[in-house]
Design a protein around this nucleic acid. Sequence first.
DNA 1: CGATGTTTAGTAGTAT
DNA 2: ATACTACTAAACATCG
Length: 314
Amino acid sequence: MPRPGRNTYSDQKPPYSYISLTAMAIQSCPEKMLPLSDIYKFIMDRFPYYRENTQRWQNSLRHNLSFNDCFIKIPRRPEQPGKGSFWALHPSCGDMFENGSFLRRRKRFKVGGMLVSDSLAPSKPQDTTHYLQQQAKRRLSALHAAAHLPQVAGGYNLSPVSQPSSFKHPFAIESIIARDYKMPSGLSAFSTAGYPLHNPLTPTWQHMYGSGMMESAAPISMASDYSAYGMPLKSICQAGQTLPAIPMPIKPAPGSMPALPGMPAHLRAFLANSPQSLSPTSPRTATGQSSPLVPEEELSSSASTGLPTVVSVH
DNA sequence: CGATGTTTAGTAGTAT
DNA sequence: ATACTACTAAACATCG
């Protein structure tokens, strides 16, 4: 691990795998799905290392998208022309990095290990896409609601608008990038360049994972909670003992699919066997500044309330 | 034609 | 030692 320094290692290779980086990018988007080009942009925006040798790492990244089951491809709708599909995280891959390493996953996420009891009724791909769309819609609703709701102490937004399945990926942008950019110096669990000074997932997290609290933990809002509203970090992140975000990964029982709150069993069963590509009822583009699911003025209003758009703007 | 997506193959590092 | 994971390269196909 490189030593932390001033203005250093922003050029060095981040301690994240391509899967982590891609997951960050996807998580940074309110809709939790991005086209490939935006994933590129996100990574290049935040990690100067990846502004060079683009051919190499982008090829690797594409390989990862296709090869890993944790990424699902969502086709564009006809009214949303453009190149390529949207890429989203498989709803059940939230615990990939439970071991705390963003370079090496605990185990490769692979679909197919579903519970037999959940697989009795084969579900339709449309259901899954509809579900994902609903999730995207709810995320945006939550985002916009958060922009207008007073923030509770600590920046946590306990608004019930958060969707049932809005668990926090341990490698989510909420958990990584927010700290990366907004931590006051000296308090950050990350170095000035955004690299962890220690393992990002401390035993505290692991304790939380095993405590069974993730099902009951109050959903919190997006990364903006930390970045835009100035959480008193000292109280929540002392010497890396704790982390600002409450991680709520889905921790499946060994050999079984996790119970995803709000997700129908048949859908879980489908996802366990789903092909990479889903039916063409995807949400509209998350690129650009106009959101497909909300009027443009709503987005700008959220921006005007101090809610940062994590999505890279170009 | 370039971007995107899939697949195969090989290498290196790490976990068990 | 073996298995697994990540990374890289490359060929190839598809699509706008």
